[in-house]
């Protein structure tokens, strides 16, 4: 969910690895980010809308990844995927580390680019290879 730079990169890679991938974004023009070889499905719609999620095939999904710009939207859609549709693996991007920590305790795997970026740069500063 969310066809930004991160979403597109994830979709392309998983597609190349042979997974069946569907990308959902409420702005269909953003599907242009995906390279020409992308073989997955495109679903224009709001990932917080249950009908749109169902059209995108959420009922059959083994994993759901939310990477829109909005922390709360990502969390909401992730909770829908988990609680309503029982998706086994749900990963949610949350920029605000405080919020991410709380979401994590609620059973959603969260990734905070803010914390991860800070950690990586501090590691570089210390002369270690980035994790």
């Amino acid at each position: 969910m969310g066809c930004g730079r991160t979403g597109a990169a994830i979709a392309e890679r998983l597609d190349r690895e042979g997974h069946r991938v569907t990308v959902i974004d409420r702005d269909a023009s953003r599907f242009g980010r995906l390279d020409g070889g992308f073989g997955g499905r495109l679903a224009a719609g709001n990932g917080m809308d249950m009908e749109a999620l169902e059209r995108a095939g959420v009922r059959e999904a083994d994993a759901f990844i939310a990477v829109t710009q909005g922390d709360n939207r990502n969390f909401f859609a992730s909770q829908l995927a988990r609680e309503v549709y029982g998706v086994a693996r749900v990963i949610c991007r949350v920029k605000d580390p405080q919020r991410g920590e709380i979401f994590g305790r609620l059973g959603i795997d969260t990734y905070s680019p803010t914390s991860a970026g800070a950690d990586a740069m501090i590691a570089m500063l210390a002369g270690e290879a980035p994790a």
């Binding site: 909005g70 909401f76 919020r99 709380i102």
Partner: peptide, 15 residues
């Protein structure tokens, strides 16, 4: 006016 924000507020408050 945004359901996702309302959900997050409730979850944080309960936390």
């Amino acid at each position: 006016g945004d359901d996702e924000d309302n959900l997050v507020v409730c979850e944080i408050a309960r936390h």
